[in-house]
Lab assay of single mutants.
Amino acid sequence: CKPMSYEEKRQLSLDINKLPGEKLGRVVHIIQSREPSLKNSNPDEIEIDFETLKPSTLRELERYVTS
């Protein structure tokens, strides 16, 4: 899986911020299912740190927000 450039992460962040509330739950689910360290975090307060997410997680999020 190809790592994301800074610009791609920035765009992904903007795209996620534009999602309606009902789609954000899926974003949280994708992150929690792929990032063991965030599995028990509160979905309402999850802070997405794009620098610490795996490339595969970032690509999955990218696919979701652009679908």
Rank of each mutant, 00 (worst) to 15 (best):
P20V: 10
L61G: 06
H29L: 04
V27L: 13
D49F: 02
S5V: 00
L38A: 05
S56I: 04
L24Q: 11
I48L: 12
R63D: 10
T66C: 11
S56R: 06
Q32N: 13
I31A: 05
V65P: 05
Y6Q: 14
L38V: 11
L53H: 04
I16V: 06
R63Y: 07
K9P: 00
E22W: 08
P20C: 13
E8I: 05
P3W: 00
N42Y: 03
E35S: 03
P55W: 01
K9Y: 00
D15I: 14
E7D: 13
N42H: 14
L14G: 04
E45K: 09
D15N: 15
E7G: 06
L58Q: 09
L24F: 12
K23C: 15
L14Y: 10
L38W: 14
Y64W: 04
R63V: 08
E60A: 14
S56K: 06
Q11K: 11
T66L: 09
S13N: 08
C1N: 10
G25W: 08
N40R: 11
E7N: 05
L12P: 00
S13H: 10
L24D: 12
Q32S: 05
S33D: 07
Y64S: 06
R34M: 15
L24C: 02
L61R: 07
R26Y: 10
P55S: 08
R59G: 01
S5E: 07
R26W: 09
R10Q: 08
S56C: 07
L38H: 12
D15Q: 14
G25S: 15
M4W: 04
L38C: 05
S37A: 13
L58W: 05
Q11G: 03
G25K: 15
L61K: 09
F50P: 13
E35L: 03
L58G: 08
K23D: 15
V65L: 07
S33L: 07
E8Q: 05
L53Y: 07
K23I: 13
N40H: 12
H29K: 12
D44Q: 13
R10D: 01
S37Y: 11
D49K: 09
E47A: 14
R34T: 02
S13M: 06
P3R: 07
D49I: 01
E35F: 00
D15F: 11
I31D: 00
E7R: 06
N40I: 11
N42Q: 11
S37H: 14
K54G: 08
I48T: 04
S33A: 10
P55D: 14
P3L: 05
E62G: 03
Y6F: 13
R34C: 12
K54R: 11
I46A: 07
I16M: 09
L61Y: 02
P55Y: 05
C1A: 10
S67V: 04
N42T: 07
I16W: 02
E8W: 00
K39V: 09
K39Y: 09
L38D: 04
L38K: 08
C1K: 12
S13A: 11
N17L: 05
S13I: 09
K9W: 05
R26Q: 12
M4E: 02
L58V: 06
L61P: 06
I16G: 00
E62D: 07
S37T: 13
K18G: 07
N42K: 15
C1V: 08
F50T: 11
L14Q: 12
E60N: 07
E22N: 11
K2Q: 08
S33I: 01
D44W: 04
I46S: 12
R26L: 04
L24W: 14
P3G: 06
P55K: 06
E45C: 06
L38P: 02
K18A: 12
K54L: 11
Q11M: 04
S13R: 15
R59Q: 01
K54Y: 01
V28T: 11
K2M: 03
I46E: 13
H29N: 15
K23R: 10
V28D: 03
Q11L: 04
P20N: 14
Q11P: 00
E51S: 07
P43A: 13
E22D: 13
H29Y: 02
E62K: 11
H29T: 08
S5G: 05
L53D: 05
E45M: 06
